[in-house]
Amino acid sequence: MPFWAQVREIARKDLVIEIRTAEVLLMTVPFAAAALVLIPFAIGTDAPLLAELGPGLFWIVVLLFGVLVILRKSAVDEGPQQDLVRLLGIDPAARFTGSTVATSLLVLLFEVALLPILIALYNPDLGGWWWMAAVLPLVAAGLGLLGSLTGGVTASLGTRTSLTPLLIVPLALPLLVGATQAVESLQLGRSILPWLVLLAAVDLALAVSGVLAARPLEEVTT
């Protein structure tokens, strides 16, 4: 079976399972939205301040709560399912890519769902908003890739849910920097391009690492 057909099968399987459990849409999105409601109680409800901090808060919420999208149930194959997929003879790189595509799409959905809530609550400057069409997918892909890599390393470990965030968050800094500075550059009227290049470079480095690590990762079972 051709590589991309395998990728499509794996991604579709992950997404169908996600649609049935609705973990991201019905649990993670409301949780993150509630956080956006709570934050002003801690930092004050001063309108100009919220408008200024809003974009940064959005990205930090996407990064930290996005880890829950990465940890969702449909991202993990339990022991017997893992055996099944390994024995079906799927190219490990296709499996990595397929689950990354699914996770990235869900992170993108997560971002898109939170965006209107942020705009409504914080009223940020929306200048150059169409650039978000590039920034959101690049960040989603980066988180999806980091998620598949770290998720692969922590697969079937008892402490997976605590360990994975610890592994993801320090390495996600370039994504956070790229996203927040892209938005800030827009507001300052500077070029957004370097930050998009940064995001793309991070995605590329992670994608190459992931494809190369796929085979050794495939043998990770206990």
Binding site: M1, A5, Q6, E9, K13, V16, I17, R20, T21, S74, E78, G79, P80, Q81, D83, L84, R86, L87, L88, G89, I90
Partner: peptide, 30 residues
């Protein structure tokens, strides 16, 4: 590997997929 079928004591099936979907997944991938 594709010429080996292992039926373990825990089912190698995705709980959220139907029985038909589980098998079609296997059929397409092989």
């Amino acid at each position: 590997r594709p010429d080996i079928v292992l039926v373990g004591h825990l089912p190698g099936l995705y709980p959220e997929l139907t029985l038909g979907e589980n098998l079609r997944f296997v059929a397409r991938l092989t």
